[in-house]
């Protein structure tokens, strides 16, 4: 499974099985220069991050870093997920090297709140498009303040026309709906915060 995020002119891909590092020679772009120190710094950041694969493209400059098996250079690095607009709109417009994609930042804030307030997160069991209701215009599965049990269906995630019910897995009261309806969500991203 590949996870790919588009940040302005930058593409970042994340792969599941890391093991090897692969690097393309960095080329000097007209509008951006990277020194050897910069490249080493990027490598260090990637190495410390949870990303398995990173690709930066700015103009003619292209850097590909993989902690996994060698990436087939004729296909994978050129592929980009067409994520629904909600995720793309949240992306910063400038190219950036930071490993965390914006959708994860939202999730991270929620995780911080969960830790601080003793809340439990309901996370996405699969990547895809998140829906709060069974169909457009229908009442949402749940809402802030609602009491839920472990078996309550709280949302849907669609990937390739497969609809996956998101089960609460926790008994309590919904405190926050973190993900937006129609938003592209990553595996493990926080969708709801629940007070047990």
């Amino acid at each position: 499974m590949r996870r790919i995020f588009m940040l302005g002119g930058t593409r970042i891909q994340r792969f599941r099985n890391p093991s090897v590092v692969q690097q393309n020679p960095a080329r000097k772009a007209e509008n951006m220069e990277l020194s050897e120190d910069d490249v080493l710094h990027i490598l260090k950041l990637i190495d410390e991050s949870k990303f398995d694969y990173f690709q930066l493209e700015v103009g003619e400059l292209k850097i590909t870093v993989s902690k996994g098996d060698p990436i087939p250079m004729n296909s994978a690095p050129q592929t980009v997920t067409v994520a629904p607009a909600a995720a793309a709109a949240a992306a910063p417009t400038a190219a950036r090297v930071a490993p965390a994609p914006p959708v994860q930042t939202q999730s991270s804030n929620a995780q911080a709140r969960a830790a601080a307030e003793g809340l439990v997160s309901i996370t996405a069991p699969i990547l895809g498009t998140f829906y709060v209701a069974p169909e457009p215009g229908a009442a949402p599965f749940t809402q802030v303040g609602a009491a839920i049990t472990e078996d309550t269906t709280v949302g849907l995630i669609e990937v390739m026309k497969v609809f996956n019910s998101v089960r609460s897995g926790v008994k309590g009261t919904v405190v926050e709906i973190v993900a937006q309806n129609g938003q592209f969500v990553e595996y493990g991203q926080t969708l709801f915060l629940v007070k047990p």
């Binding site: 590949r2 790919i4 296909s75 050129q78 592929t79 980009v80 997920t81 067409v82 994520a83 629904p84 990547l127 895809g128 498009t129 669609e158 990937v159 390739m160 592209f184």
Partner: peptide, 14 residues
């Protein structure tokens, strides 16, 4: 999907 800029894109929704 090959988009109009010649990039190969991977579509999982829509």
């Amino acid at each position: 999907l090959e988009d109009d800029q010649g990039n190969l894109q991977r579509v999982i929704a829509g």
